[in-house]
Design a protein around this nucleic acid. Structure first.
Length: 415
DNA sequence: TCTGGGGTCCTAGGACCC
DNA sequence: TCTGGGGTCCTAGGACCC
């Protein structure tokens, strides 16, 4: 039996910027960037000038003097992104959401209701355009990898269907960096072997790729280049970690900078962990210095934590250890905390009790119950009166946090 | 030009156990 | 005492994705 091309990859075009052009018709056809100090998203008109997300606003204005900066309607992004994904869900429950503006769908089981996959894709595009006013590109193929590449080829505002008997003809002429997992570094290493297309990659011996990229990565890449992709749609993926970071510009590596910053990051992370009852055992801290080089240090605790002050103290100890090992570095440009090894807490108080003599691995754990209770009180007040009603003085961080919290939340994965 | 913030996965070495 | 092998966990770093 023929295996159908029935995996869809749907991707909203230049999503944030397109929403801004939807909300304000005077922006249509003009180069638009969401953000200010840093570009969070750019319209196609802006991308044509070389404007990219993550770019400093000053640089973007140099490249494109006409560029219009808008602050961003983050609630609208969430609403419209959800609405677009819901259109997919009208056809099948087998939807795997990748981010706010992108999802896979498996329509194998619903063609008897809605017609062939290509027709379903066309209907989805028409509905998203008609009901939401947004362009969404879709790739249709037998595998996730191929569907994803097809949607990239389809952009902007297009539909590309890859028939099962035409997969390699479609795939092999394309540049390697269109493949999932091939970024700038891998692209450069492959270029040293003379490999620039997916077809050339497919023709490269497996041992050669394994030597270049490691056994697992080499094997995966080889399989994908021959369109062997075993991945199924996963409708409910849970997060493996939760983190937060803050770029600081250039700040002295001193307690009055480090402590309030780490406390704020810990507050953001632990609020999420407690809300979903997912405490974590491993704490990783990253310190980036003025030259943008970065060092990480982590510790795995005997029991999972979700109390803000315990995370903050653990993180501070790790940050101090990093700085002690790099005494020449007096200036830092970023601090980050990540919590992994997330567990499913039935509910409360896994912060306790402290084992016999392992205080060193459980900094502050003796005060765990009291702290978790205080946190839960703060959580409750915030639920009623808002985030800023109570908590650990974020004002101490100073005025200019580069990225609004509303924007950060859009990127948070469901715990 | 001196680059934001949320994540995932892989690698390699060492510790430790059987 | 010396030797080999497999498995798991931890840590640090890196590449990649949106």
């Amino acid at each position: 039996m023929e295996i159908a091309a029935a995996i869809l990859h749907a991707d909203l075009d230049a999503f944030y910027a397109s929403v801004e052009q939807l909300l304000d018709p005077s922006l249509r056809g003009r180069p638009v960037a969401v953000g200010g100090g840093v570009v969070l998203a750019a319209s196609y008109e802006a991308k044509a000038f070389g404007v990219r997300s993550g770019m400093p606003g000053r640089r973007a204005r140099e490249l494109c003097p006409e560029l219009v900066f808008v602050g961003g309607h983050f609630r609208e992004y969430q609403r419209l992104g959800d609405a677009a994904i819901d259109v997919l869900r009208d056809f099948t429950p087998l939807v795997e959401r990748i981010s706010i503006d992108e999802a896979f769908a498996d329509v194998r089981g619903c063609t008897h209701l809605f017609g062939p996959p290509a027709e379903i894709a066309a209907t989805i595009r028409r509905r998203v355009r008609g009901e939401l006013g947004l362009a969404i590109s879709i790739g249709v193929a037998r595998t996730k990898h191929l569907a994803k590449i097809a949607s990239q080829v389809a952009k902007p505002d297009g539909l590309v269907v890859v028939a099962p008997d035409a997969e390699l003809d479609f795939l092999h002429p394309l540049p390697v960096d269109l493949m999932w997992g091939v970024g700038p570094a891998t692209k450069a290493r492959l270029a040293e072997l003379g490999v620039t297309t997916i077809g050339q990659l497919a023709a490269t011996p497996g041992w050669s790729l394994a030597k270049l990229l490691g056994p697992a990565s080499g094997e995966k890449l080889a399989a994908l280049s021959w369109s062997r992709d075993p991945r199924e749609i996963e409708t409910h993926r849970r997060a493996q970690s939760a983190g937060a970071q803050s770029a600081l510009g250039r700040k002295p590596a001193q307690t009055h900078v480090i402590r309030p910053t780490l406390l704020h990051l810990a507050d953001r992370i632990c609020t999420r962990l407690r809300a979903k009852s997912r405490p974590g055992r491993t704490v990783t801290v990253r310190v980036r210095f003025a030259d943008l080089s970065a060092v990480t240090r982590s510790v795995t605790l005997d029991a999972p934590i979700s109390a803000t002050l315990i995370l903050a103290e653990t993180a501070e100890a790790l940050a101090r250890a990093i700085l002690a090992e790099h005494p020449a570095e007096r200036t830092i440009s970023l601090l980050a905390i990540s919590v992994s090894h997330l567990e499913e807490a039935a509910d409360l108080q896994l912060e306790l009790p402290l084992g016999l003599a392992d205080e060193a691995r459980r900094p502050g754990a003796k005060r765990g119950i009291a702290r978790l209770s205080a946190d839960r009180a703060v959580d409750a007040i915030r639920r009623r009166f808002g985030w800023d009603a109570v908590g650990y003085a974020a004002a101490a961080l100073g005025p200019a946090r580069a990225v609004p919290d509303a924007f950060r939340e859009l990127a948070e994965k469901e715990l």
